[in-house]
Amino acid sequence: MRASVGTGPGPCRAIPPNWKLGLTLSVIVASSLIPLEHWPAHGVLLALTFAGLSLAGVTLTYLARRLALFLPMLLVFGLTVPMNQVDRSAAWAWTIALWMRCTVSFLAGLWLVHVLPFAELLSTLIRWRCPRLLVAMLAFMYRYIFILWEELARLRHARDARDFGRSTLLIRWTTNAQLIGLLLLRAMERAERTHHAMLARGWDGSPRFLADDGERNDV
């Protein structure tokens, strides 16, 4: 599993996280509000996001791979409207606007995931007065995603070693469901053990975070 978070140096990384989120949301809202008649504005937004992506160090190969997964669904979704009309002119205009909006928004989102590390997201959420409990759950989830992912990879490896990757559709469904079920059981047992360990360290149900200035405060 590979999160698309940029970790290397770059001009975009130096931007404060508030600005990164604000900038991305502004581009998405602007692309949603600009009508198709003002298509040069869409072109400017597209050029800006491309520039941002190249500054963030996104390679063309990676971009092409992500777009190859994203565009077909969008094309089919958009084409459904004009294909079902008697008078297609208005529907085509709407579909082209939809494609433009979604593509600009997708690229803006891609820029954000490349320049906003998870720690910055958490600190931003804390600064924005997001409920502590929710931020703590998010941090906990992020901590265990990678552990569970590795566990899942081991389970898959064991399954493939037993059936050599060859099995019927029914067996694949059954084993996949068992795989998730087993992961669920192990994770819930792990959660119980972790909870006991947290209690042993004085956990009282109220999350506390290290503030950005290094002092230990209730947030």
Partner: peptide
């Protein structure tokens, strides 16, 4: 109560990982 964070966080992580398991369609 005080189990909310570990249980909910872990369950979310399981669902996230579980969504990576693909089920083939006929």
């Amino acid at each position: 109560e005080d189990r909310a964070v570990p249980l909910t966080g872990m369950l979310a992580a399981v669902i996230f990982a579980g969504q990576m398991v693909n089920f083939p369609l006929i």
